[in-house]
């Protein structure tokens, strides 16, 4: 057996791969579920916080800024561990799935709030004035005039950040979530063969590479033209 054959036999073992393919696939489903939940709830919460911040209520804004800073400062893995291992001591025991979802959604909320807010504040004052001069209220101006322009401006930084945070679903493996990496790791220790890990790696690429390529396209498409 040549070195190459041995390499393939070890890292791309067909028998092992066939055996653990269902596990990896079920891991993919969990990863997708987590990712969708994180993106939807994280972006929505971030947008709501940014809109609340536009109301310019001092104490509320201090609170928003603190929460945002907190979740930008803490490593996501630390938040996950804190929720999963810490909360049970307070009588709440979230599952690993819920811990990972909440943690990453909070992180995405914080980052997206910053980006949405920067977008809103970057819209020139004249846009507000023109709209208010025709009788639109503060809220109507925010929703109809400012937000559409701000969102367009925020799409490139937002996509990049969202991808980076969503990849973090792999961290769920630390708190026993059966997503791709978790499935792959346990398959490796059961089969004593690294092939499942290679499949796991491929699974991540299948899921995320199209998103990254699409993001590249979005970035050029939404470069602001006036």
């Amino acid at each position: 057996m040549s070195t190459w054959d041995r390499f393939v036999e070890t890292f791309f073992n067909a028998k092992v791969m066939v055996k653990y393919l269902p596990d990896i696939l079920s891991g993919m489903v969990v990863t997708i579920e987590l990712a969708v939940l994180i993106v939807l709830s994280g972006l929505l919460a971030g947008l709501v916080l940014a809109l609340l911040r536009a109301l310019a209520i001092r104490p509320l804004n201090w609170l928003i800024i603190f929460v945002v800073d907190l979740f930008r400062s803490l490593p996501p893995l630390v938040i996950i561990v804190l929720i999963y291992f810490g909360l049970p001591a307070a009588g709440v025991s979230p599952s690993g799935f819920v811990s990972t979802w909440l943690s990453l959604a909070f992180v995405l909320m914080a980052f997206s709030e910053e980006i949405f807010w920067a977008g809103i504040t970057s819209i020139p004052k004249g846009q507000w004035e023109a709209s208010r001069s025709t009788g639109l209220s503060f809220g109507q101006t925010l929703i109809n005039v400012v937000l559409p322009q701000a969102l367009r401006l925020t799409i490139p930084p937002l996509t990049n950040r969202t991808i980076a945070i969503t990849k973090g679903t792999a961290l769920g493996t630390v708190v026993a979530v059966t997503e791709i990496l978790g499935q792959a790791s346990s398959a490796v220790s059961n089969s004593y063969n690294p092939s499942p890990l290679m499949m796991g790696a491929a699974a991540y690429l299948v899921l995320f590479l199209p998103v990254v390529v699409a993001a590249r396209w979005v970035e050029t498409k939404f470069a602001w033209k006036r």
Binding site: P124, G126, Q127, E129, A130, S131, R132, S133, T134, G135, V145, P148, Q149, R152, R226
Partner: peptide, 16 residues
Amino acid sequence: RQRIGMVFQSFNLYPH
């Protein structure tokens, strides 16, 4: 404000 039209130096049209 609907009854008072205003025109600005920098137009301030909504670009979107």
